[in-house]
Design a protein around this nucleic acid. Sequence first.
DNA 1: ATTTTCAAT
Length: 206
Amino acid sequence: MKGVLLTQRKFIYHYKNVRWARGRNETYLCFVVKKRNSPDSLSFDFGHLRNRSGCHVELLFLSYLGVLCPGFLGSGVDGVRVAYAITWFCSWSPCSNCAHRLSRFMSQMPNLRLRIFVSRLYFCDEEDSQEREGLRCLQRAGVQVTVMTYKDFFYCWQTFVAQNQKAFKAWDDLHQNSIRLSRKLQRILQPSESEDLRDGFALLGL
DNA sequence: ATTTTCAAT
């Protein structure tokens, strides 16, 4: 799983942020794990994972965390807790169950920072979908969730794909789709105007 | 206009 680069074809197919992602019945997760042992010592690890049948890729990643982050669960050398920063790029945003599991996990791990970039939003069309609530739960747990933009696809191409010096070429509508999905995610994560008003009234004691 | 989704055949 580690050190193996994605093929160009697979990356493009699975990370394409098209509106109707027919046939993407798999999810890929490209990760970078940054480990800070001390203020002036840093190490990296990176790679990608794909979901297995019956196990979503996020939970698969959690199960590998002990391998990727030695000493993660315990304390580091000298009893000082090592700080980790994980960034991952997922072709789909997490399902409700994974989001809640991740949130709970993160709330127990103060030495871990997680940033999630997603290409497409998974089952977020319904206003009251569980997936939307799951994303808000992640946000409350301090996880940064962001829709991938051109620079993120570019970075992934450079980092996780066997690109053989071939430059990343954006597909049609990459930018427009990214903007549309970013706005959608913002609407999901931002408290609604009426909630703002309610909070405002509550503050004023009204 | 409508289309999909960490499958199930």
